[in-house]
Simulated assay, not measured.
Amino acid sequence: MKCINCGTENNDANKFCRNCGNELKDENNPQEIICQTCGAKNKPGNNYCILCGENLIVTADKNSTKLNLHNRFNDTNKKRKQKHSSENKNYQMQKKIELKPVLITAIVIIVSYLAVTLIDYWKDKNTSSVRTVEIKSTNPVVESIVYEIASKFVCSCGTCGEKSLEKCTCPHAEEERQFIRDYMGKNGQKNDIIVALANKYGYLKSEYAKDYKKVDVSKIWKSNDLNTFSNSKNIIK
């Protein structure tokens, strides 16, 4: 018996197809013609029933019509499923196309943010690592003046225990002493250098403050101990 669903040949005793599990019915099997009058099984080549003599051509036509309707119904369902599957794929593809610009924009924003962050980090790292190098003069007279001026100040870094500027070895003290050298290189006068250094870095020792009246009072180290400057304005004229 041949399965009308998958076309697999089965034994006549089989009730269900051994390949697809479809129910095997005699009236749906094109290899046999069932007589509508007596129910006898006839071979496809018989024109009349072998048991009752009924015309089998009419019966075969009816069976063929049923089979065609069944196949047409299956084809319709199959096409409907294919159409639904195709529409679903098209919908998913359309959604992907719509989401693509959004994803690209998000990726660009994230990459830009990371790039800016890394650049800022690199700048901060390199900027913080740069320090003024103290380049001492080969002229002992120049160095003598540098340390003489530095002796009138306390290192302004705030972490070295307020050492005198000519003795402190911290990077900030080196920067201040280099400031003195650079200013001297511009033919600056000693008094002008002291005023400029005091107003920029502060911490001019109080015992020298009375000699430099253009120094901001707030730049004098322990200026509150000086009676001379206790009631003065910010800039001593």
Score class of each variant (00 low, 15 high):
residue 1 M to I: 04
residue 4 I to N: 06
residue 4 I to W: 10
residue 5 N to S: 12
residue 7 G to N: 13
residue 7 G to K: 08
residue 15 K to Q: 10
residue 17 C to G: 05
residue 20 C to Y: 13
residue 30 P to H: 07
residue 32 E to K: 13
residue 41 K to G: 07
residue 46 N to S: 00
residue 48 Y to A: 08
residue 51 L to N: 03
residue 51 L to F: 05
residue 59 T to Y: 01
residue 60 A to I: 06
residue 63 N to P: 00
residue 65 T to L: 08
residue 66 K to E: 08
residue 66 K to M: 03
residue 69 L to M: 09
residue 72 R to L: 15
residue 72 R to M: 14
residue 73 F to A: 08
residue 73 F to N: 04
residue 74 N to P: 00
residue 75 D to N: 07
residue 80 R to T: 10
residue 83 K to P: 09
residue 84 H to G: 07
residue 90 N to F: 13
residue 100 K to I: 01
residue 101 P to Y: 14
residue 101 P to D: 12
residue 105 T to K: 06
residue 109 I to P: 11
residue 110 I to W: 07
residue 112 S to Q: 02
residue 112 S to A: 14
residue 126 N to M: 10
residue 145 I to D: 01
residue 147 Y to R: 08
residue 147 Y to V: 07
residue 150 A to N: 02
residue 152 K to A: 02
residue 153 F to H: 05
residue 159 T to Y: 11
residue 161 G to Q: 10
residue 162 E to Y: 03
residue 164 S to V: 00
residue 172 H to Q: 11
residue 178 Q to G: 12
residue 179 F to N: 01
residue 185 G to V: 06
residue 187 N to T: 15
residue 191 N to Y: 11
residue 192 D to F: 10
residue 192 D to P: 07
residue 193 I to Y: 05
residue 193 I to M: 09
residue 202 G to R: 09
residue 210 K to I: 09
residue 212 Y to W: 07
residue 213 K to W: 04
residue 214 K to Y: 05
residue 223 S to G: 01
residue 228 T to N: 02
residue 230 S to Y: 01
residue 236 I to P: 09
